[in-house]
Simulated scan of single mutants.
Amino acid sequence: MRLTAIAAAVTLVAGVAHAESHSGAVAPEDVQYGETGAVATSLSGMPGDAANGQVVFSTKSMGNCVSCHAVAQLTDVPFQGEVGPELTWSGESRSEEELRGIVANAKMSFDGTVMPAFYKTNGYIRPGNGYTGKAAEGDLPPILTAQQVEDVVAFLLTLKEQ
């Protein structure tokens, strides 16, 4: 019985530590962009998971990046986009910091881009209040979480010439 109580206490402490590590995420309004739009440090404080990043990248209800970008390595994903640049070699052509900035808010790197800001909550001029034709009241939630941004960046870094 005592061993069970100790195990439960350890599990609880580990769970709290895990939750606190995620609460250390940089808020969207606090992201520090460099001169060219790069973001030097992790938004979540945690390393990205490339496998989860691939899911976010290719899932319509998440990042849906594949609607605009083609990636040759994603042979099982049909109907890849042609609007944005092909990302098949993004792991060779961009640094982690550049990719993080582009995914978080591409407008900081490329003025006039149509790519959405995936980690932004305010400053929008178009999104309305649920199809009412009226401006949204207050900040909007970011499209992706800080960890999802890190995961997509980790995935993009794996894309290299095979």
Rank of each mutant, 00 (worst) to 15 (best):
R2V: 15
T4A: 15
T4D: 11
A5M: 12
A5G: 09
A5F: 04
I6G: 10
I6R: 09
A8H: 05
A9I: 09
L12V: 12
A14S: 06
G15L: 15
G15V: 09
V16R: 13
H18M: 10
E20G: 07
S23R: 14
A25M: 12
D30E: 11
Q32K: 13
Q32N: 10
G34D: 06
E35Q: 06
V39T: 08
A40V: 05
L43A: 06
L43V: 09
L43H: 04
L43W: 04
M46K: 14
D49E: 01
A51L: 10
N52K: 01
G53D: 02
S61Q: 11
G63N: 05
N64F: 06
N64R: 08
C65S: 10
C68V: 05
A70N: 00
D76I: 00
V77Y: 01
P85T: 09
P85R: 07
T88N: 00
R94N: 03
R94F: 05
S95H: 05
E98N: 01
E98L: 09
G101F: 01
I102C: 04
A104G: 10
N105T: 12
A106E: 06
A106D: 03
A106G: 14
A106H: 08
M108Q: 15
S109N: 10
F110C: 10
D111G: 11
D111H: 12
V114I: 13
F118G: 02
Y119Q: 11
K120L: 12
T121C: 11
G123W: 13
I125H: 08
G128D: 15
N129I: 10
G130H: 06
G133E: 05
G133H: 07
K134H: 09
K134L: 12
A135E: 12
E137G: 08
E137V: 05
G138E: 11
L140M: 13
L140Q: 07
P142G: 08
I143M: 09
Q147P: 00
Q148V: 05
Q148N: 07
D151M: 01
A154M: 10
A154D: 07
T158A: 08
T158H: 08
L159Y: 02
